[in-house]
Design a binder for these strands. Structure first.
Length: 270
DNA sequence: ATGAAAATAT
DNA sequence: AATATTTTCA
């Protein structure tokens, strides 16, 4: 392990989706803040697979302009305290998480450092702390009842964790912090970005209000954020070929509000 | 800042 | 009703 340390990061980085891969989904992206602030709404699209046209009648032009959100004034100031959309841990994101922890070593694997290494923007320390808490719980759970038996009570959550192999040392509290994979004394550029909790990417331009159902690509991105007042979260399964992507909601929702799903991806600032 | 528990949202 | 995430506590 000599130059390996200089390569691990590069290799790791390679796992990131290529720019091209990001485009498809980026079209359906909306800045969380933006979406929330404007209480974004858009015409819903039926989950039809659609060979036909997506939305025949509903106003094609989402003129999401102002008209819509203006109406929502339910008697409060929404644009004020913007809540962060709920973060959804996808297998990919989790993998990044695990990799980061593995590289840091259990000793240094604390929320802050993990978060920094993951360098996924939009991701907060809280997000990581929370996930870490659950992950530890999972590991514990697994040590006591994983082996033999047969019985297995794997919860839904465990499935996520299972998607990413658990590095041996995780179960081995042995006194090695990051022996096998010690991390370079310097931190990768991407990891340096400890910017404030706001995400405003140029990629996520507001151009996507129209939510084209043109998502054929497997959008296996990393993060999925959904607004909180929804009825149905948009579940995305990685292996699925198509998913209902983003904003799906329409005027019919009298009070439930818009369903907004946002996605963040590992930002590798080039 | 971190870890754990309580509170919520889905 | 159960679980995933967030928020509050120590």
């Amino acid at each position: 392990m000599r130059e390996e340390d200089s390569n691990w990061f590069a290799k790791w980085e390679e796992e990131l989706p290529s720019p091209e891969e990001l485009i498809p989904i980026s079209q359906s992206l909306i800045t969380p803040d933006l979406a929330i602030a404007f209480d974004l709404r858009s015409p819903n699209h039926r989950s039809n697979g659609n060979s036909g046209q997506p939305l025949p009648q509903t106003t094609p032009s989402q003129a999401n302009s102002s008209a819509e959100f203006a109406a929502d004034s339910a008697g409060d100031e929404p644009a004020r305290t913007l809540k962060r959309p709920r973060l959804v841990w996808t297998p990919q994101l989790h993998k990044r998480f695990v990799d980061a922890v593995a590289h840091l070593g259990i000793k240094n694997a604390v929320p802050k450092t993990i978060m920094q290494l993951m360098s996924v923007d939009g991701l907060t320390r809280e997000n990581v702390a929370s996930h870490l808490q659950k992950y530890r719980l999972y590991l514990k759970r697994m040590q006591s009842g994983g082996g033999g038996g047969g019985g297995g009570n794997v919860g839904e959550s465990d499935h996520l964790f299972a998607s990413s192999p658990v590095p041996a040392h995780f179960l081995h509290p042995i006194g090695r912090q990051s022996s096998d994979h010690f991390m370079p004394s310097f931190v990768p550029i991407a990891a340096l970005q400890q910017q404030p909790p706001q995400f405003l990417h140029r990629q996520i331009s507001a151009a996507n209000f129209t939510s084209p159902t043109s998502n054929g690509k497997a959008m296996d991105q990393s993060l999925f954020l959904a607004r909180q007042n929804q009825q149905q979260p948009v579940l995305i399964r990685p292996s699925s070929l198509h998913l209902h992507s983003q904003v799906a909601n329409n005027a019919e929702d009298l009070e439930s509000g818009a369903k907004t799903v946002l996605t963040l991806f590992p930002s590798r600032h080039d």
